[in-house]
């Protein structure tokens, strides 16, 4: 198994974190992983993207040219990376943020107004967890339990309410991913 993922959106939407949680979970599950961000002026509010690879084999190149999975949280990111998704690949897209969509019939769409759902759950800050859930729901590249364990270790003592909110968002994301 080898999954190459690109997560892209505006700086501040938490796209780097999406990649990081997926990579960390992959590592915890004994897989080879890499995480490579865009960096520099882009991180100051422009578009940000990250390439993450989760693989059974050692990862030769961490650069993702043709992702198996794209998480696109704004239209510019969808325009840039949408055409590069491998045929049969998965697009997780925030329909509220990408009004023009993407015209392809050779990929799977997990399309939902994720930002609005995040606000419904309680905060825009859980947008990235919704997206992770959507990836898990559709692809099984990592397990929900692994992320839950990671988040629990990180948040349980510090902020149990935020932990609840995050787990709720991931579960909701999984439901959307399974649709």
């Amino acid at each position: 198994m080898k999954a190459e993922i690109i997560c892209a959106g505006f700086g501040g939407q938490g796209v780097l974190t999406i990649g990081k949680f997926i990579a960390k979970a992959g590592m915890a599950e004994g897989k080879h992983v890499s995480w490579l961000p865009s960096y520099g002026p882009e991180m100051r509010g422009g578009t940000a993207n990250v390439s993450a690879v989760v693989s059974d084999e050692p990862i030769a190149s961490p650069i993702v040219s043709y992702p198996d999975i794209l998480v696109a949280l704004n239209q510019p990111s969808l325009d840039k990376f949408g055409p590069t998704i491998r045929p049969g690949g998965v697009l997780v897209v925030d329909t509220g943020m990408c009004p023009h969509g993407l015209k392809r019939d050779d990929i799977q769409f997990v399309a939902a107004p994720f930002s609005s759902i995040a606000v419904e759950i309680g905060s825009m800050r859980v947008l990235n967890m919704l997206a992770i859930g959507a990836v898990i729901g559709r692809t099984n590249i990592i397990k929900y339990e692994t992320i839950e364990e990671d988040l629990t270790a990180f948040l349980k003592a510090k902020n149990p309410d935020l932990l609840e909110q995050n787990l709720k968002a991931i579960k909701r994301g999984i439901e959307i991913g399974k649709l």
Partner: peptide, 10 residues
Amino acid sequence: DGMLGQMMEP
């Protein structure tokens, strides 16, 4: 290089 500096790996 910038890639090795910026990327995360185990």
